[in-house]
Amino acid sequence: MRILIIGGSVFVGRAVTEEALRRGHEVTTFNRGLSGVDLPGVEAVKGDREVAADLDRLVEGREWDAVIDVIGRVPKLVGGSVRRLNGRAGVYTYVSSISAIADFPAKECDESSPRFECAPDAGPEDGEYGELKAGCERAVEEGFEGEAVIIQPGLILGPYEGVGRLPWWLDRISRGGRVLAPGDPGRAMQVIDVRDLAAFVLDRTEAGKADRFLASGVPGNITYGGWLAECRAVTGSDAEFVWVDDRFLLDREVQPWTEFPVWAPDSPEFAAVWLPSSAKALAAGLTCRPVAETVRDTWAWLRDVPPAERSFGRHGIDPEKEARILAEWA
């Protein structure tokens, strides 16, 4: 197939591009060239989807069997791309997010769960991340004249993760010592490796049939304690986990999900964070590797990144705050 990947150089986009090339597809990438490096073997077109002239230059003399959009976050911009690509491809696959589901993470969800109300022509100021993702989905579904495929991933982990969730934990645990471990070590999680997501995205794109899938991995594929233990094992660390209960941390204004990445306390707000249904995607062929393999391969990538160059975004607790809480807990 001839495939256009909007993005294609960072994390999910990189994994999708790599998988498409592995399968022998002809790949064009379209991005600004600011966040990553295009993989060898692609036709790299540099440009900004916000600039009409760049979109015109992208489509001039080109057609594709499918488009895979991995970076769209603003509905009106996604809609603009969709309109310009109408007639140039038969399938438009949009990689959205489980955050587009209005009840998540408070309630269990699947493909039938209601999405946020967000217009397909909404601008960046018209909502938060999940709301805008829902608007982007509508921009594709309502504006594309071919087959629209919507993929809503859950928590994505793996090599080249720029968000900084698993990389922060690996970095922190690799430094050893007493490590504050939040909440219940037995709480079951549900995560998906970026490479498994990429394979599923390509599978559904190749199938060429309009549909939507929630792709969040295998329910209970690891516990929080098991996840941190895997981090300790692959880094060869002497880290000693000190498990501190949710209420103690919340009383000290520790921010869930960010200060301790992927920590979701036992509360109504996060009641179903690890309970989304991937049943439809699994029945359609989604396969997921063991989480231990994801942790191992992420560390293999991260350890080649100099500590001074490791980026964790807004994730991670200040070391002094961690030490203070450990002392208070003791």
Rank of each mutant, 00 (worst) to 15 (best):
Q255I: 14
A323L: 08
L202F: 04
S311V: 13
R62E: 03
S311K: 14
W168S: 10
K280E: 09
R32T: 11
G87M: 04
S174H: 09
R22G: 14
R14F: 07
I151P: 03
T205Y: 09
G33F: 14
L170C: 07
G154T: 10
V149Q: 10
F30L: 06
L249P: 02
C109F: 15
F312M: 06
I150W: 03
P319W: 12
P40S: 14
E18Y: 04
L282H: 12
R83L: 12
P75C: 06
T93R: 05
V59I: 15
I325Q: 06
G130E: 11
I156T: 07
K280V: 10
T17S: 07
I150K: 10
A215D: 01
G61A: 10
L166Y: 01
A210K: 10
A233I: 04
G123D: 10
A323S: 11
P114H: 08
F270W: 15
G79C: 02
P261Y: 02
E141V: 15
A52Y: 06
R2W: 01
V45I: 15
G313Y: 05
D193C: 04
S112R: 14
T294N: 10
E128F: 12
D103H: 11
V27M: 07
V74F: 01
P153C: 00
V12C: 03
W329S: 00
P40D: 15
Q255G: 07
L4G: 02
R195Q: 11
E19V: 13
P40R: 13
L197V: 07
A281C: 00
R2M: 03
V37W: 05
V12Y: 05
C231N: 02
I6A: 14
E253I: 00
E141R: 15
S97K: 06
W274I: 08
E117M: 00
D121G: 12
D171M: 08
S97I: 08
L302S: 08
R175I: 02
A66M: 04
G183K: 06
E141G: 02
S35M: 09
S311I: 08
A15G: 08
D54W: 11
P153F: 01
D251N: 14
T287Y: 05
S267E: 14
S35L: 12
V218F: 03
A279T: 12
A207K: 15
T235K: 01
L4Q: 02
D110N: 15
A233T: 13
S99G: 11
F241P: 09
D110K: 10
V244L: 08
E26V: 13
I317Y: 09
I3P: 04
R2D: 14
F248P: 01
N31S: 15
E43K: 12
E147T: 05
G208E: 06
A181D: 06
V140P: 02
F260V: 12
R115S: 12
T298P: 08
L4V: 03
L166D: 03
